[in-house]
Design a protein around this nucleic acid. Structure first.
Lengths: 189, 189
DNA sequence: TAAATTACCTAGGAGCATTAGGCAAACGTA
DNA sequence: TACGTTTGCCTAATGCTCCTAGGTAATTTA
């Protein structure tokens, strides 16, 4: 009964890899146990249950994504920062579709507060420092950016843009132009 | 063995109701059979399998949503049309969260082509007639609107905006102002 | 090296998806 | 109205996933 050396962290990382390979919704306790060559029941010493496992993967993904975005944002401002943020987000979803899906998992309030989701909103706010927005416009703009980036990646990944010939690259680039223009000329209340 | 009178349509409608009550991901063949007081196996004379059932619910939701949007759009143009479209979409998600989730189901290419998703993109394009956009800007704007509305509703429903005091109503209204302004001043390529 | 810990196992129950084959209710028709 | 056909729902059975309880052997600690 050679021990494999399981622990919560290894399970989480392997779960994230599995998610990227087969989709986050197909990450199951069984599939993960299979991957380690152990019985399902063995995982329950390390994670509480299936939900716990998924939450851990989501938190890992949020951290990774926040790190990437932070790195991309370093030393940039204005439209440069906007594009860096947006591209880091979209590229992550492209390279790690399963993890990106995991990051969309609904966390309960406390878990969310302790997660990297906080850094995400802080960084989104940081972008807006390059533009001239006072509250509550800044909050509205944060929400607009979050919605648009999330929505674009979600629809693009779902194939919703495939029915039209224009490449999603070109549209993406023009949408960044448009958002930059909008932030520079945010309408008065 | 009194017959209950099942058929694909009744199952689909009941499935949609169930989705609104307990969430689309909790719509299972078993749960639906339970609701009709029949055995699981009985449903398989009417729907091919679980995936088929979910697809039918998704198609129903897309139809309903398209009908609502069409009604809201009738006789409106410009910002009026933009707001009507956006509000119809958001209100539907609010009133029918399970169906809205169903409408996000990824359909295979052929199914999507035969669905009301086509009407959705046509109607989004129709909104833009009130603005002065030539291709490929129009396509880019269609994609922007779709992304933003979808993203906003998804994040709002997931509770992502709850950490900030500003109401999501106020932000929504200002985002519509902002999008209107953006469409009127779409940046040159 | 003995004791305590713990990593993984076996066994088993419950729910969901699905197929095969059966019986009786409903329907069409003579 | 009786007869045959269709079909709606059933029983039975399999396989997969989630999860708990309790055991044994490998590892760590004293």
């Amino acid at each position: 009964m050679a021990r494999v050396g399981l622990n919560a962290e290894r399970l989480t990382r392997a779960g994230a890899e599995l998610a990227d390979e087969v989709g986050f919704d197909k990450v199951t306790v069984s599939a993960l146990a299979r991957r380690f060559g152990v019985k399902d029941a063995s995982l329950y010493s390390h994670v509480k249950n299936s939900q716990d496992l998924k939450t851990r993967i989501a938190l890992l993904a949020l951290e990774e994504l926040a790190d990437r975005v932070a790195a991309a944002l370093a030393g940039r401002a204005g439209k440069d920062a906007l594009a860096a943020f947006a591209n880091a987000y979209r590229d992550y979803a492209r390279e790690h579709p399963g993890r990106w899906a995991a990051a969309q998992l609904e966390l309960d309030y406390e878990t969310a507060l302790g997660s990297a989701a906080v850094r995400h909103s802080q960084m989104t706010r940081a972008i807006l420092r390059g533009y001239d927005l006072a509250e509550p416009d800044e909050t509205d703009a944060v929400r607009l950016l979050g919605s648009t980036f999330h929505g674009y990646v979600a629809l693009e990944r779902a194939g919703s843009f495939q029915h039209t010939p224009r490449t999603t690259e070109d549209t993406w680039s023009r949408i960044l132009d448009a958002l930059d223009a909008l932030l520079r000329n945010w309408p008065k209340a």
